[in-house]
Design a protein around this nucleic acid. Structure first.
Length: 317
DNA sequence: CACTTGACCTGTCCGC
DNA sequence: TGCGGACAGGTCAAGT
C-alpha cells in the first residue's frame, strides 16, 4: 500500500478537495469488507452529511462527517481515493442504486501507461472513472465524485461513530506517529527492543512498534542507517537505532515532499503519480549502483517474508 | 508466548 | 503466443 507518506499525500489532497461537500449518494461494488452490517447507519449518517475534516492515523484515513460519524478507510496494497469534479457523467448516476450499473466496460487489457504515455512523474495514472477496480463511489451534491478504487480488494471503507474510532482494535494497538517531533529515540528504542527476537526489518514493519513504515521506507531507512535488514534486533546498537529513526523521519519527509512513491498503483487524490522512487537509493534498484559505492550493485533478497533491497558493502550482517 | 507463514485478491512479468 | 509460477506497497489468522 500506500505507506505513511502516500496516505498523508492523499489526506492533504482530500483536505483541499472535499471538505465542505455534502454526500448525496453512495454505491458499493464488490467490496465485501466495506460497510459491513450497517446499511441503516449509512442511510442515516452518511447520506446528507457534510465533510468536516480529513485526518490520518498510521496508514488509515479518517473522513469526519457533520453527523459525528467518520469514514475509516484503509487502502492496503492497491487502494486509491480519487476525487473528480466531473459533471458530464452526472446523468448516468442519477437515481441508480445498483452499483454494478456504474462500472464501465473493461478497458480491453490496455494498461494506463500504454493509454497515457510513459508515466512521467506526476502524470495522471487514471483513465475514465469508474473503472473495473472501482469499489465505492461517493457522489456529492455538487455533482463531483470520490472514487475508492482497489484492484486487489484488500482495502475497505467503513463507517464508525467518530467517538468510537479510537476504540477500534487497530487504533488501540498501533504505535506512535514517527514524524511527530515528540517521537524520539527515547521512545523508539524500547519499542523496537520489544521485538528483540526478530530482525530489525520485521521490527520496524510491525505497526505496533511504530506507525506507518512499510516495505519501501523500511529498505530506504535501513540503507540510510547502514544496517543490514536481517540483523537481529538484539545485535543493533542504541546508536544505530537512533540513526535509524532519523533516517525513517528523513525518507518519509522527503517522500511527502515528492508526493509519495508510485511503484505501480499509487496515485494521489487527483489521480497523479508521486515521484519519490526517482530519489530512492535501494528500493526496486537491484542491479543498479549503490549511491555510496558506485562500483557496487544493489542486491535483492528476502527478509521478513518481503522483497528486500540492500547494498552488500554498506549493509553487512 | 513470540515469531513466521499463509491467506486474502487481481494483474503483471518472466522463463519455458 | 501460451501457460504456469512467482511476485506486488499490508494486515490478519493460523501454524510452529
Amino acid at each position: 500500500m500506500p505507506e505513511l507518506p502516500e496516505v498523508e499525500t492523499v489526506r492533504r489532497g482530500l483536505d483541499a478537495l472535499i471538505v465542505g461537500r455534502i454526500v448525496k449518494s453512495v454505491a458499493v461494488h464488490d467490496s465485501p469488507k466495506s460497510f459491513p452490517n450497517v446499511q441503516a447507519d449509512v442511510d442515516a449518517f452518511l447520506i446528507g452529511a457534510e465533510i468536516i475534516a480529513v485526518r490520518r492515523r498510521a496508514k488509515v484515513l479518517l473522513i469526519d462527517l457533520s453527523t459525528s460519524y467518520t469514514l475509516v478507510i484503509h487502502l492496503k496494497m492497491t487502494g486509491q481515493l480519487v476525487w473528480i469534479a466531473d459533471t458530464s457523467r452526472k446523468a448516468s448516476f442519477r437515481g441508480r442504486s445498483d452499483a454494478s450499473e456504474l462500472i464501465s466496460p473493461a478497458s480491453g487489457g490496455v494498461s494506463p501507461s500504454e493509454r497515457f504515455g510513459a508515466g512521467h512523474p506526476n502524470d495522471s495514472l487514471i483513465g475514465e472513472l469508474p473503472d473495473r477496480s472501482t469499489r465505492v463511489v461517493l457522489e456529492f451534491q455538487d455533482g463531483s465524485y470520490l472514487y475508492f478504487n482497489d484492484q486487489r480488494k484488500f482495502g475497505w471503507v467503513k463507517l464508525y461513530p467518530t467517538l468510537e474510532v479510537p476504540n477500534i482494535d487497530f487504533m488501540q494497538k498501533v504505535g506512535p506517529e514517527p514524524l511527530e517531533d515528540i517521537f524520539t529515540s527515547k521512545e523508539f528504542i524500547p519499542r523496537v527492543r520489544r521485538r528483540n527476537g526478530t530482525t530489525i526489518k520485521a521490527a520496524i514493519l510491525d505497526q505496533t512498534v511504530v506507525a506507518g513504515v512499510g516495505n519501501i521506507y523500511a529498505d530506504e531507512s535501513l540503507w540510510g542507517a547502514q544496517i543490514h535488514p536481517a540483523t537481529r534486533v538484539k545485535n543493533v546498537s542504541d546508536a544505530d537505532l537512533t540513526t535509524l529513526l532519523k533516517e525513517i523521519k528523513y525518507v518519509m519527509n522527503l517522500s511527502i515532499e515528492k508526493g509519495g512513491s508510485t511503484d505501480r498503483n499509487y496515485v494521489n487524490a487527483e489521480g497523479k503519480r508521486g515521484s519519490y522512487t526517482d530519489f530512492a537509493r535501494v528500493f526496486r534498484r537491484e542491479g543498479q549502483a549503490c549511491p555510496r559505492h558506485p562500483e557496487v550493485m544493489i542486491e535483492k533478497l528476502r527478509v521478513a517474508g518481503r522483497g528486500t533491497h540492500i547494498c552488500p558493502v554498506c549493509q553487512v550482517l
